[in-house]
Design a protein around this nucleic acid. Structure first.
Lengths: 235, 235
DNA sequence: CAGGCAGTTTGCGCTGGCGCAAATAGCCGC
DNA sequence: GCGGCTATTTGCGCCAGCGCAAACTGCCTG
């Protein structure tokens, strides 16, 4: 059964393409399910496909030779990921793990050249994606160089929540399970410190948190926290 | 006077192109000199061109809203830089400052689409460049999350030296002026800490350093330092 | 519904590395 | 050769946040 073009018609990656184009693009893709905690691809693995997340959330994790893990980002619905081919890489630089049950479209790398040349808008969109990843990653380096742990965590929460937040009566909730450890691995700290800060914020009524769950009840206050920077150069 | 193709013929960015192609590419470029400490482009500035460094060394610097600076990387001879256009960005995400007197080739952004489509190998090379920048930046995040300052500085020195080292009787010297502050801004620390560590290494005979100058006399020992990691997970 | 496990909280002590400040030392221009 | 500027070194005190360890708590499973 061919994939329905409505799956991807609204996505920024395919902006400016008509129905026929979408069908052509989809004809090269296959869709698959990944249950929670399963790996879409692994770090250092031979890159054979590139992907689009149709539904769910995916954690992109880099593991160091000594076994330390760092979460590079979360992929949300509609995003391209694993586009090693677009950067001329032959292996995936990180692994991708389903944070919840996910549905993913996969294209074989062999489709890349064709899609890119037939639908330049699609290629451009992929390159824009890479550009923003680079931008974000550089911003993260900056943040780690100049901000305290508290600000970094506040900022990370705001980022996640704005990307993958679900409104509830109590506030905005991160709509996938996330542990203190996960947050620590996104911000370069330890689960202990994350736990302490979340507790403090809970006392101040800024967040509510539970097992693998964080709800931001006062985003504005959290923004203030994230902006209260360490003393910088005078100007 | 047209630019001579020998300027760029050996560079990886133009691998696989013949003399006529090179001339065509060069015909769209103009060459300019940037004296030490002058800015090739500024952060947030409208991106109007992309560049190739013919000679010299360029410092890529990001400045935070509070005035903190971070050195994202050094560009060495033969590298493309400022290729915001390839990522669909309209402004430069960082500024580029000549670390020494530099000679630079600049293409107007309007040449990008044409060059990319006429010479796919050139486009691919640019995308590979971006891919490795992303890779490196992510590795840096990892490093900052998991390693101590000492290891980070050791690693940074090794990286610079392998990229821009000049052999001298005493060891390998960084062949552009670099201050303790610069090293601090590459590694997310302070010039004080850098100075202390360099002094310690000097006592151990691993480096020799002077005003805006660092010579690695014992790269192997420095590698050992950079690999002596903080205790990690058991496996 | 009894365990057991994974995730979380919290206390406590310690230390890497920062912040500040002052002294020193190359280098450049005059 | 004399300032004066900029880069560097170094001492000292302090504290954010880590490491360790122990207790706790939902939640899932049998």
């Amino acid at each position: 059964m061919p994939l329905d073009r409505s799956l991807i018609s609204g996505l920024p990656a395919f902006a400016g393409l008509d129905g026929k184009d979408l069908d052509a693009i989809l004809s090269r893709a296959r869709s698959s399910r990944f249950p929670k905690d399963s790996e879409v691809f692994g770090q250092e693995e031979e890159a054979t496909s590139f992907f689009l997340l149709l539904s769910g959330h995916i954690r992109v994790v880099r593991t160091s030779p000594e076994g330390h893990q760092v979460i590079a980002r979360y992929i949300t619905e509609g995003e391209l990921f694993g586009i090693a081919i677009a950067m001329g890489r032959t292996t995936y630089p990180a692994s991708a793990v389903a944070a919840v049950d996910c549905v993913v479209l996969a294209w074989p790398n062999s489709a890349w050249a064709e899609l890119q040349s037939r639908f330049p808008a699609f290629g451009a969109s992929a390159y824009r994606t890479i550009g923003s990843r680079l931008q974000e990653t550089q911003a993260q380096v900056m943040e780690m160089s100049t901000q305290q742990v508290e600000q970094r965590i506040a900022h990370a929460l705001l980022r996640i929540v704005s990307q993958s937040g679900r409104k509830t009566p109590e506030g905005i909730e991160i709509d996938f399970p996330i542990t203190r450890q996960d947050i620590a691995e996104m911000t370069g700290t330890t689960l202990h410190t994350v736990s302490r800060l979340l507790s403090a914020w809970e006392d101040q009524g800024i967040v509510r948190s539970g097992r693998q769950k964080v709800t931001v009840t006062d985003p504005h206050a959290l923004m203030l926290v994230s902006e209260h920077r360490r003393k910088g150069p005078a100007a």
